[in-house]
Amino acid sequence: MANVEPEDTETTLPRRQLGRLLREARSATGMNLERAAALVQWSRPTLSRLERGETEKIRVSDILALCEAYGLDGKTTAIARGLAEQVPAKSWWHAYGDLIPAWANLYVGLESSAVSLTIFQSLILHGLLQTTDYAKTLDRIYFPDETEDGLDRRVRIRRQRQHLLTRSHLPTEVAVVLHENVLRTVVGDNKLMSAQCRHLADIGTRPNIEIRVLPFRAGFPLGAALPPFTIMDFDPDTPGRKGSDPSQVYCEGYSGSVYLEKRTDVTMFRQAFRKLQEASLDARASRDLVREIARRFESER
């Protein structure tokens, strides 16, 4: 069934993320809306709109007052302040080291609440599909000053994220297109890559996961190179949520990430993904190729 994109909403991602952060912080204190609003001399509707991400003009001083009222630590307050200082826009560039620290990892919160993920990767495996060794090898290069304990923590977080694919109740639906580059570019050594490919083939047999390989011979199905991207779709019927978060396109780069939520942007990436799927091997043929590459890595050790 073709996806029909909803009309553009009035809220934007930074505002919704700020609202979610403050709502969760208030809930953790046990305060209701009336009590929390009174602490900062607001009305209940004003705070409610802020928590739903529907407030366009935000004063940083008000956000800091709420953070103090909720007893938030310095790191969380810094995230809230950074989100408050973002200019509302349907396209949002989150630069690492900018107002919002890289360690805040806002993407993870979105990923965990999505009901379906549509993923294209051209060079590196998506974190949800990485083995522990693959993930740690990459992190050791990208974070050269990190301790072994720090690297282990990063990998544990990635493994925790992967549970959304394998949980018994309502696992996330995932459609993936991997360029053949991803499978043949060696991370670590051949033994590691063989194990990684076998993991891909195995997890691709799950009913909620479809993995297709875009072979070299497919060329450029869109006539241009595409960045790695993830489309996140959310459940409109989540209890306690008014309406649905709009679908998001997430494109991660070396120095930062782009979040797109305009209907035209989401539609364009969704159409691009369908073309990539059409040019790819089907799921069974893709698994056969992945296993063949795994055997080749094994034989070349």
Rank of each mutant, 00 (worst) to 15 (best):
A37K: 00
E146V: 10
K242A: 15
W42Q: 13
E7K: 12
R217A: 15
A37I: 03
R140F: 02
G109V: 01
G97N: 10
E51V: 03
G150T: 07
D288Q: 12
L178Y: 07
C67L: 10
D62V: 00
R156F: 08
E24L: 15
V115A: 08
E51K: 00
L64C: 06
H169Q: 11
R140K: 08
A114L: 02
G204S: 13
M31H: 11
R287G: 05
A224E: 06
S43I: 07
V60G: 09
E5H: 14
L183Y: 08
S48I: 09
G204Q: 06
Q162N: 09
G256F: 07
V60D: 13
E292H: 04
M232F: 10
E146Q: 10
H179S: 12
S48Q: 14
S194I: 00
E7M: 13
G71I: 05
S194A: 12
Y70T: 04
D265V: 08
G219I: 02
L164F: 10
A89R: 13
A69H: 11
E111Y: 09
L47G: 03
L260T: 01
A38Y: 04
T230Q: 07
P6Q: 02
K57R: 15
I203L: 12
L222H: 12
M31N: 12
D245T: 07
E56A: 15
F220G: 13
A224V: 06
S255I: 10
S43W: 03
E180S: 13
R159S: 05
A104P: 00
Q248T: 15
A36Y: 11
D98K: 02
P236K: 04
S194G: 09
Q277D: 14
P45C: 08
E111L: 06
D62S: 11
D237K: 07
W92T: 08
Q162W: 03
G127C: 08
S280C: 14
G109R: 01
R167E: 14
G71M: 02
R217F: 08
V155R: 00
M232K: 01
H94W: 10
V290Q: 03
A272T: 02
F273K: 03
A104R: 01
I293L: 13
F220H: 15
L164A: 11
K136G: 15
Q41N: 13
S194N: 04
E24R: 08
A294P: 01
V155Q: 00
L99G: 05
E252V: 03
N190R: 06
L183S: 05
K136A: 13
E300A: 14
I211H: 01
R159V: 07
A218I: 08
N3W: 15
P101A: 07
E210T: 14
P101T: 02
I211Y: 00
N190P: 00
M193S: 07
I157R: 11
M1L: 05
E54T: 03
Y254D: 15
T46N: 10
S43Y: 04
N105R: 09
V115C: 12
T185F: 13
W103T: 05
S244K: 05
S280A: 14
D149C: 08
E10T: 14
A114G: 02
S168W: 04
T137K: 00
R206V: 05
